[in-house]
Amino acid sequence: MSAVGVEWTPVCRLDDLQPERGVAALVDGVQMAVFRTFNDELHAVGNQDPFTGAFVISRGIVGSRGDAATVASPLHKQVFDLATGVCLDDESVRVPVYPIRARDGVVELALR
């Protein structure tokens, strides 16, 4: 992703994120699900479960399928690739992926 024109919003400290567990963040009215994996990779995807409409993705269980880092929707357990947003159980569906970074211990999100 290019840094040009990207507007970053700080949302929390990196230490606030428990590895392998998500939190929800609200950026300009958009709900994002934010994850820190065991190896300190950061991911931000849309918080809305595309199958039910409920805003719950941040509360799913984090894990892996093959090599992909994933989250499972807490409602009906469909699994999403955190890096691409693609649903691995139904590749025609996906959640949006948002730019995320940590600077000086602060996690920042952008709307792209």
């Binding site: 894990g63 892996s64 399928r65 093959g66 499972a72 357990k77």
Partner: peptide, 8 residues
């Protein structure tokens, strides 16, 4: 691997 919503 890292686990999933079954084994965790």
């Amino acid at each position: 691997g890292r686990g999933c919503d079954t084994c965790k």
